[in-house]
Amino acid sequence: MKKEKRKSNYLRAIGAIAWKDLAAELRSRELLSGMLVFSLLVILIFNFALELDAKTRTSVTAGVLWVTFVFAGTLGLNRSMAIEKDRGCLDGLLLAPVDRSAIYFGKVISNLAFMIIVEIIILPTYSFLYNINLFQPGLLLVILLGSIGYTAVGTLLSAMSVQTRTRDVMLPILLFPIIVPVLIAAVKASNGYLQGLPTDQILPWINLLIVYDVIFIAISFMVFDYIVEE
């Protein structure tokens, strides 16, 4: 009975932290609007840099989409942790009588939500602009799995980078070499779906994404305590 109660308390703490982020964002819309405009600009730049004509489009769409998500994601991760740090909210959260990992999971959920919202808007825009059908269940699954892995590591490393002197520069430098496997697997799998490859050729990449997600959520869960400790 008691154990069950503790478990529900833990889940409630995670929910409360995620909800607080979403509610704050709903009122200010600082972070989401920044991420969105930025992603649209990245796509615009790619359009001119790569000459996205019908022929090149089929082979580079997956790459363009993922680079856009990754860059926009960095912006969001940085901002969402910086808000906590600047106004001393993080210290408040640390004082709360909940397990520290609840803070981590709460932040992952809200960061993931921001990323998915941006993706929900970017995907139809891209489809509309370039006349490619991106709404395939397999592709959406890949994007979800990739975003989970990205935010799992990103939240951990952004909690680290905001506590350094060169914080805004630090996050991408720390994060990008670590998420290379996510990026490779996500781009390969997305490309597979866009080019209509048989599922058995795409499956290894999806498995890799799942393995990465599980490993890094577990690792972050274990080490998050050391990062927020004062």
Binding site: M160, I178, I179, V180, I219
Partner: peptide, 10 residues
């Protein structure tokens, strides 16, 4: 230490 650990796994 956290970063080397994350790197060593990735």
């Amino acid at each position: 230490a956290v970063y080397t650990l994350v790197g060593a796994i990735s």
